[in-house]
Nucleic acid binder design. Structure first.
Lengths: 110, 110
DNA sequence: TATTTATATTGCAATATTACGATAATAAAA
DNA sequence: TTTTATTATCGTAATATTGCAATATAAATA
């Protein structure tokens, strides 16, 4: 049905899924990587970096912003975007759990 | 168009996106969390855990398996699933970069 | 105020995802 | 070999995502 039964999962599960989903597109990975490289930049810079039209980039930025992974500040006529620590902090714990588990696991079937 | 222009991105970007996308659904988060809790289990156990029908769970397991995040071994009539270290290892570096960056960042616009 | 520049929104077509009933496939048990 | 148990696949409906042209909005500048 294309509709996720999110009401049947915990808030934590839904939140983690939303964050991972936002990261789950190569254009949005590229945007994150670019922001790490240049620290902060405006939408137009990303349009020049990526093989996508301006409305498409704007849409990807919106999704990253909604998920809490980036934030934007007005800077004259442009909007300056950079990573939002808060969003990444939320994912951190999840992957830490997994890594801790994988380092200590024993007696698995596979 | 609903079609991702993956040919315009690097292999690394596409691979990271595929992994994140696979994690980006609450049911698949729940499956991963369950596997951490019980170490390994069969599909039927997950069907009992989640509010989803068996074909739906099977489909989610397939996606996690295709992404390299879980693996399954035949164990009698059942299939025993557990986490696949390989997949998570690939994401680890990406988040490590982000966390290192966020810990040292300065002079941001926002 | 009119123009330019930068970004967002709308509308739409193409494609992908989610979910599940029905059914198939596979292997153990009777 | 038939039955039972377990998981996978098929088919399909509902919904979501991706991408972009066209357009709107907002702020700076002439």
């Amino acid at each position: 049905m294309g509709i996720t039964k999110s009401e049947h999962f915990t808030d934590e599960q839904n939140e983690l899924a939303t964050l991972a989903k936002a990261i789950g597109h190569p254009a949005r990975i590229a945007i994150i990587q670019h922001l790490i490289k240049v620290n902060s930049c405006v939408c137009g810079d990303i349009v020049n970096e990526l093989p996508l039209a301006q409305p498409t980039v704007s849409q990807h930025l919106k999704e990253l912003k909604n998920a809490g992974l980036i934030k934007g500040n007005f800077e004259g006529a442009s909007i300056c975007y950079c990573l939002n620590e808060e969003g990444f902090e939320k994912i951190k714990g999840f992957f830490k759990n997994i890594n801790d588990y994988l380092e200590n696991k024993k007696n698995q079937c596979c």
